[in-house]
Simulated assay, not measured.
Amino acid sequence: MFKRIACIRIGGGEIVRDAAEETPVAVFVNGRHLTTVALSPGGFRDFITGYLYTEEIIRSPGEIESVRIEENRISVLTKNIFKRGSVKKTILSGCGGAVSYIDTQKLPIIDSDLAVTVPEIEAAVAALPAPGPLDAVALAEGGRIVACAEDLDRHNALDRVIGRGLQNDLDFSRTVAACTGTVTSEMVRKCLAANIPVLASAGSPTALAVEIADETGLAIVGSAGTPEMAVYAHEKRITGMGA
């Protein structure tokens, strides 16, 4: 995932540092171009499974007939070869594209009675790789990490762990997603699509992410593992918070 690159240090002298590799990958579904994404190399099967699932193009890995992975292209054939996909957007355009708004009624609602403890959340975030050039996401179940991935973009990393969970028949309704960086509305949407009830980050959520989570049953925890740790939405899912 890294390549050694020569560079010149400010103040003089040539040094060699690790640079994250970036691979533009075109995604085709049933012969039609769906999107092009920038990914870290490798693990494309996990990514495409999770991506198609969170984009609601498939509802289970069993709907995938075949996946052909090349250096800069992923070609997917679904069992319904007439299936046409489109990329979902959390933010929709209003009349003439002049207004943006969220239609939360079109988003899934979390269906889970999961409640997790503060130590479980702290342990999940602590298990993430050390901060670096790549974003990281992990899925934890019962305090145990069951999937972890890194990528240039945390949205892609989330798709990767969801894809791995799908292939291992993981019950997402019993899991916590832990991540680095800012929690965005798109990360919330992907958790809703997978029915992941708790999203915790070492960073903070956006106001829009909190607004959507409030209306859809998703718990968001920010600054996890620090003295500033706080619950931004659906605090009833978090036990042992104290007075």
Results as ranks from 00 to 15, higher is better:
I162P: 11
N30R: 02
M187T: 07
D111K: 15
N80L: 00
R45W: 07
V37A: 14
A20F: 06
P133D: 09
T182P: 02
G62E: 04
P119E: 07
E56A: 05
L107G: 05
F44C: 12
E228V: 12
S100I: 10
R68Q: 12
L166A: 12
R45A: 12
E56N: 13
T180W: 01
D111A: 15
G240E: 02
G96M: 12
T239M: 03
G203H: 04
G242K: 11
P205W: 04
S75M: 07
F28K: 05
V210A: 14
D153F: 13
Q105R: 11
G12Q: 05
L158E: 06
N168T: 15
I48E: 01
P227Y: 01
R189S: 11
R17N: 08
A123M: 03
N195A: 04
G203M: 05
I212Q: 03
D151Q: 11
S223Q: 12
S173G: 08
D46T: 10
G143W: 14
T239P: 00
R17H: 07
D169L: 13
P119H: 07
L139P: 09
I15Y: 03
G240S: 09
A136E: 02
P24I: 12
E14D: 04
T54W: 06
R68W: 04
R144M: 08
T104R: 04
K106F: 11
V27T: 06
S201H: 03
E65H: 14
F2K: 10
V29A: 07
D46C: 10
P133G: 06
I238H: 01
A193H: 04
V29S: 01
Q167C: 11
V210F: 03
A243V: 12
V27Y: 03
M187V: 09
G240I: 09
T175D: 04
L218H: 07
I109P: 02
E150L: 15
P205V: 04
S100G: 14
S201M: 00
F172A: 13
G225D: 02
I58G: 03
N168W: 06
V137K: 06
M229I: 08
R237Q: 05
I212E: 00
T216G: 01
G217A: 00
P61S: 08
C7I: 11
A149W: 08
T78I: 07
A243K: 14
A194W: 01
L158S: 14
L158A: 13
A202R: 10
P131M: 05
A6C: 00
R9H: 10
V183L: 14
T175Q: 02
E65W: 15
F47Q: 12
